[in-house]
Design a protein around this nucleic acid. Structure first.
Length: 270
DNA sequence: CCGATTTGACCCGG
DNA sequence: CCGGGTCAAATCGG
């Protein structure tokens, strides 16, 4: 009927978890569909292919937005059984003065003036609600270009978490994201190769993209590097890693798998 | 040669 | 003090 003017969330009562689950399912399905379709479209020199990709992006973006709102609603109203909520880690990006006696070359910063205000965006706090999380097969290529700036091993986790920043940080784009592979217990799956292909990643997006245009239809994978196994703990991965690098195989698709479209607050227009 | 990634150090909040 | 996020020099790779 009459649409609510804006983000007036409907009362989420019972059955919300069901909806959330359905949304998640839909999300995964969309991701799979996109991962299958995009490589096919890649070779097609046609504008319709681009349009199709864009449409897919839009649909996924809407889906994500709705899912985020739904979960937010669940959290706020009642402590719904949110399976995994993104903990907004308090993160303050600040640089102390060069009090380090170690004489490390870190004092070469251009701005020593500690900004009490977020003038240059130096002080970034992740405690906002702006973070969105997503569970996806391949964390790259959501239509944005990211640059990795760090990787950390989280204490109890078996997979490291890696930190990405928008490639256009020289611009005003403060968007960041973290990617972490989820441990999946493939107890039922007897397939040995299930490890890599079914690997899922939790992607958390922070900040907002202020890039001029992120309408890059699709960027290609920078590197087929497996983010998780880097140091040498790739024992199990090595066992699982079949990765026939032959042409046109499913793993090839998986590498080019892309992600989803990130959508900010309530900008998704209908 | 230039840009992206790696990787250990630093730094901050809880 | 520790856990986790970011920096930046070194390195890799096209």
């Amino acid at each position: 009927m009459d649409r609510k003017s804006s983000l007036t969330l409907p009362p989420c009562g019972h059955g919300s978890s069901e909806m959330t689950e359905t949304m998640r399912r839909q999300q995964e399905l969309l991701m799979q569909l996109r991962a299958l379709v995009l490589p096919v479209l890649h070779g097609v020199h046609d504008t319709s292919a681009d349009i199709a990709a864009q449409l897919l992006d839009d649909v996924i973006g809407c889906n994500i937005s709705v899912a985020s709102k739904l979960e937010e609603c669940l959290v706020s109203t009642d402590d719904g059984p949110v399976p995994e909520l993104v903990d907004d880690k308090s993160l303050v990006r600040k640089r102390n003065d060069g009090t380090t006696t170690t004489g490390d070359s870190r004092t070469t910063t251009e701005e020593q003036a500690k900004p009490a205000t977020n003038s240059a965006g130096q002080k970034r706090r992740r405690n906002d609600k702006r973070s969105r999380y997503l569970l996806t097969h391949v964390p790259h290529y959501d239509g944005y270009q990211w640059r990795k700036y760090g990787q950390k091993n989280i204490n109890g986790r078996q997979h490291p978490r890696n930190y990405y920043r928008c490639a256009y940080r020289e611009r005003n784009c403060l968007a960041t994201k973290t990617i972490e592979q989820q441990e999946q217990n493939n107890a039922g799956t007897s397939s040995a190769m299930a490890g890599v292909e079914n690997a899922k990643y939790t992607v958390v997006y922070y900040g907002d993209h202020t890039c001029k245009d992120h309408n890059i239809s699709m960027v290609q994978a920078p590197k087929p590097v497996n983010m998780d196994l880097q140091n040498g703990e790739m024992a199990k991965a090595a066992a699982n890693v079949q990765e026939p690098e032959a042409d046109l195989d499913l793993p090839a698709l998986l590498e080019v798998f892309d992600n989803h479209l990130v959508d900010w607050d309530d900008d998704w227009k209908m």
